[in-house]
Design a protein around this nucleic acid. Structure first.
Lengths: 219, 219
DNA sequence: TTATATTTTTAGATATGTCTAAATATTATT
DNA sequence: AATAATATTTAGACATATCTAAAAATATAA
């Protein structure tokens, strides 16, 4: 099925919200996510429902159908493969990757995406640690724990970040924290949950919140 | 200036037609190029004129202003860099490259394009032999002669093709003719202008028309 | 140079996607 | 359970881009 740019955006928003909460997606939540008015969202929900991409009952919110989910997953595949390309091949900084990938994910060609996948060596995760669905839509979640759980003295490999806001990514970039870096936990502060880690020679102080948004593989 | 997808398409069409003929672009010609009605074209010409991207007088056709030309050149740069990427990095076939690049050229980020340019090693020509404008919009035309001018016994390096229709590119692909291949002229037919060339061990018969659309650098 | 043919523009309609303001339905509170 | 607060939908408008059919301008030919 051929979808418009906007329809795809809504589908992705629906997928995002429904995997987060596993409940019906409400009109207002979707409106907030997409920065649109609730009225616009209602219109689009009716349209997507007519196309059988969502189940929608007035006043009851919406949920992706199997077909809608399949299309949303395809968008995630495209988005994340492009992110790998931008980050790894083009050396574009973390905080700039998201915005560009959001445009690239709407490029239609399946041929393109499969060739891109091959070019990148069939990566399983994007630069933020999110799993990349394969051509059949299958993907595996990774065992990952927040940096905040790393016990003092232990080492971890950074494999992802939860928050993808530009300001947070810049904050990490400035501290030298990125995918593939190895860090050692030095000390937790019992009072404010902040922690001290080392990255190479450098000692870094992280807020408890920041540490909980960074994912590692314990070494 | 932020342009819509469609405005960009018109700008590219205008550029294409005006470099071909170096005259005012007529409404009907542009309509044919873009497969739109003349009425739609008139509307858009008025809009682009209001934005000072073209000079337009009713019934007299249109011509790009300096600013319009600059934006059109930027689109060409994007289109051609993407073509290099698709053809060279992703190994996508000649005949599939055009359609995908036409979508990719509308991706907005300058950062992306400059990084792509660097990644590809600042190529000067695309896989069809067209010059790639640099970040400042400058580009150099290449000395290139049609394969049909290659004298019997002489060798040439294939560097471009004029016609970019899918059927023609497939025809060339099937014969093994592509960028970077070295061919030797064997014989011209005086009657129908067809020619015989060799490519490696293989002997290939080309129509006069086809040979005139393939560009070579004499060796 | 007047009539005819062609090209271009205008007029009016349609489709997509957006909005604000008003109406309606649902949920929470007393 | 009635009322107040919140969420959602409907109504009506607007912007972009498209079309067909009719009108107007330009170019061609007798």
């Amino acid at each position: 099925m051929e979808l418009s740019y906007v329809e795809e955006t809504y589908l992705k928003g629906l997928h995002h919200l429904s995997t987060q909460t596993n409940k019906q997606v409400t009109t207002n939540d979707l409106a907030a996510t997409l920065s649109n008015s609730a009225a616009s969202v209602t219109d689009m929900l009716k349209k997507l429902s007519r196309k059988s991409l969502i189940n929608y009952e007035p006043y009851q919110g919406a949920r992706l159908t199997e077909q809608g989910n399949k299309l949303a997953t395809r968008l995630l595949r495209k988005n994340r493969l492009w992110k790998v390309f931008l980050y790894q091949s083009l050396n574009i900084r973390w905080e700039d990757v998201q915005e560009i990938a959001e445009e690239l994910e709407h490029i239609k060609s399946d041929l393109l995406i499969d060739h891109l996948d091959a070019f990148l060596g069939y990566p399983k995760f994007d630069p933020f640690g999110e799993p990349i669905p394969n051509a059949q839509g299958k993907y595996t979640l990774r065992v990952q724990s927040p940096l905040s759980d790393l016990l003092p003295g232990k080492q971890g490999l950074i494999i992802g970040v939860k928050d993808q806001h530009v300001s947070f990514l810049k904050y990490l970039d400035e501290k030298g924290i990125g995918i593939g870096k190895i860090v050692t936990s030095i000390k937790h502060d019992a009072y404010d949950q902040s922690m001290i880690i080392t990255l190479g020679q450098k000692e870094i102080n992280l807020s408890g919140k920041a540490a909980s948004l960074i994912f590692i593989k314990p070494l």
